[in-house]
Design a protein around this nucleic acid. Structure first.
Lengths: 280, 280
DNA sequence: ATCACTTACGGGTGACGTAAAAATC
DNA sequence: GATTTTTACGTCACCCGTAAGTGAT
């Protein structure tokens, strides 16, 4: 059977076009690469190169072989990544979410519940969450909609409602029963980065508004405390933040302002996740 | 990068279940395999086995890794087969057909036309022909119907008509203008093996008939010469066989008795095949 | 002369076999 | 005692680097 190092060297030659360039990239000497390619031809029982005295290039066989080499190398890479991800998933609990709310709510409880296991939580776009669920990077993911996947379960995981955070002097404070996105479209808001789906929601619902982004929550809090600009809060974060007499929170009445979350996980992980799921 | 021999050994262990059995299958000693599996775990940075003092088994990681190992090994096998087939196709002309008629007709001309190249012809079912065309086992294949494939051309390649070969004493000789399958359904026929599509055709059209199969054409000729049983001939083979005064050939009138052939080949092979195609 | 590839030679890593130990059935 | 795995040790293959050779630009 042909060893991987020969395929790596063939792929490098296919990429760089000359033995000298490829050998440099591979951190081996050029004669060594030359010998390896001869060996590869011997083992396949086929010529892979057109040779002249001082030139070498892939022939038709070589092109096909190089394509396969790349596919095989890619599959080996995938293998190590997948196996290592699976191993991590057996030693630590990793949860991905499309919004920070659910993670903030459970973070402390999770580390307490799984005291013998490191717990990590990540905020990622849905596409990456699904890929990570499939490849065992995440044992559970939180999406803002139901989703049935083969071999997976999907259970409700609470909801989060967006609140408008207003300076007491703001004209909209009279609407204490609730506001609608369209009434504020065009206003300038303070907003923290990495709010997952909320970013897209507020930009969609208030397309004419400007959003001043703070890279950390601390920055955001500092600005909100010392500014009259409207900002955002949510019913989930409210529980964890001290009340702020400089700010009045008013609910958004629009449907999109309340997101319902669902926890999706592979059935094989149900047992591990039971303590977590019972909290939902 | 993880070398192939480690994956081969992992796959063997996954298949045989114990190090001793796998090592025997691999023709290496058991301690050597034991060390290899430890090395594989080191290189992946992950445990692959559950070990007790005198027992070892794949854990969850190991099962996943073994699956990948098998896929990678299969791809390497495919690579060598494909590259070797491509190489053969560059040194010899190989034509596959669904029926022997076209091959017999062209065989001598082909070897003369491609005097510098070995020429081989094979009779195979359509499924294998198509696979062989895709993988460059065949530069051209002959099917009994048109077929448009991406990157391929399809040109007519003549036709073949089935003839009924009768002993002069057979009652059906009076039908010298032609017979129909249904008139002979239930009769017993002599027939040579490896007639490709014709086998299915006569069995479909005369489901109540019995076919006595001869494994070689010589056997068939000998039996036909010394028997009163009906047999088959075709307009193509008639040209190449001496006339037989003991036999009268009568055409089948059914549509299925005349098959139209098409030659299908990759466009990149058109140049090579030009002399062949001009004969069609 | 420089560049690119091949051939020749020597060294060190590592994969394998042999031998032996440990543990379970 | 038979089976299975692991550890210890020596050996040989082979992969690589260095050096030299050949031909083309």
């Amino acid at each position: 059977m042909i060893e991987i190092y020969l395929l790596e060297q063939l792929a490098a030659f296919a990429e760089y076009g000359t033995l000298s360039a490829a050998s440099e990239a591979l951190h081996i000497t050029q004669p060594s690469l030359s010998r390896s390619m001869q060996k590869l031809e011997r083992e396949l029982g086929v010529t892979l190169f057109e040779r002249t005295k001082n030139h070498i290039a892939l022939n038709e066989n070589g092109v096909l072989a190089a394509e396969y080499a790349e596919r095989i190398l890619a599959m080996e890479d995938e293998m190590t990544l997948r196996v290592q991800a699976l191993d991590r998933s057996r030693h630590m609990l990793s949860i991905g979410s499309c919004a920070p709310g659910p993670l903030i709510k459970w973070a402390s409880q999770l580390t307490a519940m799984y005291s013998d296991m490191p717990v990590t939580t990540e905020l990622k776009p849905e596409e990456e969450l699904l890929k990570g669920l499939d490849t065992d990077v995440y044992q559970a993911i939180i999406l803002n909609h139901e989703l049935e996947l083969p071999g997976c379960d999907c259970v409700p995981a609470g909801s989060e409602s967006l609140l408008l955070s207003l300076h007491p002097g703001h004209p909209a404070v009279v609407l204490e029963n609730g506001v609608r996105f369209k009434d504020l479209d065009g206003d300038t808001f303070l907003m923290v980065a990495d709010v997952g789906i909320w970013d897209e929601i507020v930009r969609n619902e208030m397309p004419r508004s400007t959003f001043i982004i703070q890279s950390t929550l601390d920055e955001n809090v500092a600005l909100v405390d010392n500014s009259t600009l409207p900002a955002f809060a949510s019913d989930l974060t409210e529980e964890f933040r001290r009340p702020d007499e400089n700010r009045i929170h008013i609910p958004f009445l629009d449907e999109e302002a309340t997101q319902h979350f669902y926890c999706i996980f592979k059935k094989k992980n149900r047992k591990l996740l039971t303590p977590f799921l019972s909290q939902l």
